[in-house]
Design a binder for these strands. Sequence first.
DNA 1: CATGAAAAGTCTAAAGG
DNA 2: CCTTTAGACTTTTCATG
Lengths: 162, 162
Amino acid sequence: MAQNNVRDRAGGAIDDVDAAIIEQLQRDARIPNNQLAERVGIAPSTCIARVRSLVDRGVVTGFEARVDPAALGLGLQALISVSVRSGARHRMAEFSAEMRRMPDVLQLFFLGGSEDFILHIAARDSAHVRDFVLEHLSAHPFVASTRTSMVFEHVSRAVTIP
Amino acid sequence: MAQNNVRDRAGGAIDDVDAAIIEQLQRDARIPNNQLAERVGIAPSTCIARVRSLVDRGVVTGFEARVDPAALGLGLQALISVSVRSGARHRMAEFSAEMRRMPDVLQLFFLGGSEDFILHIAARDSAHVRDFVLEHLSAHPFVASTRTSMVFEHVSRAVTIP
DNA sequence: CATGAAAAGTCTAAAGG
DNA sequence: CCTTTAGACTTTTCATG
């Protein structure tokens, strides 16, 4: 069986050509359609239809520019584990919406287990991290406790096709 | 002072037009250059030069397609905190390179503090998570201990210009 | 640095296999 | 589902303010 066939949510299948398209677009979302077509070995018009189908089926969810936070003066990153008061567990959605509005928040992970969620933030310096935790977390009525760890290095990779 | 002037690493400055360009490209990296130019209020030829400059200065580090792991059959995500044996601390770089090669790893955070790093992985199901931890972490000579938390929800946001 | 105009290249739809 | 073709649209370069 030379061909992959991971089924997607919409019932379509990801074949080898789709996989190759995805891999190229993960590397460079701005590759011209005709170059992309040539690299994956199909005609440009077929390629355009394939890319559209991947987007329509929800496999490719968007195309975004990666920006270096350090280049914007945000040279520090931190992970903050937050435990929510047991009485406030049912209001997590509310809290989530608040956190999402904070400009410093890069990622938000809602977890099962003892910790309730982890925030990934970008900051100018350690005073900025401290202020963020004190003002937006420690002082928050839903928050039971926090634990902050500085990020020394962050590696992020696109998901690999199984 | 109506104009922003965050200095970047290369000594250039991010002015309001650059900030507007970055914001648009974070939303949609594939926006046509002439549309982008119109939205930020400059000529297409100027816009092309601005975008190139942002890339050359390392402010914009790339353009990538976002892919839904669930659409590829990876419906589960986990965060795994890993503590490294004290004797192996000086070989973290080696370990990092190994982890980066694993196809299931989405992100890798190197931390200061008691935990040494956190892995963010995508998996088919809980058996896949368990196998990953057992085979690649617990069995690894550098690893002292691990703690796995399932991710119920993951929100990821582009960095905001300060 | 920014611009406009012209050349080079790319996108896309339609028709046919 | 793929390919070819041809017209429309975009990108890009470069000379000039």
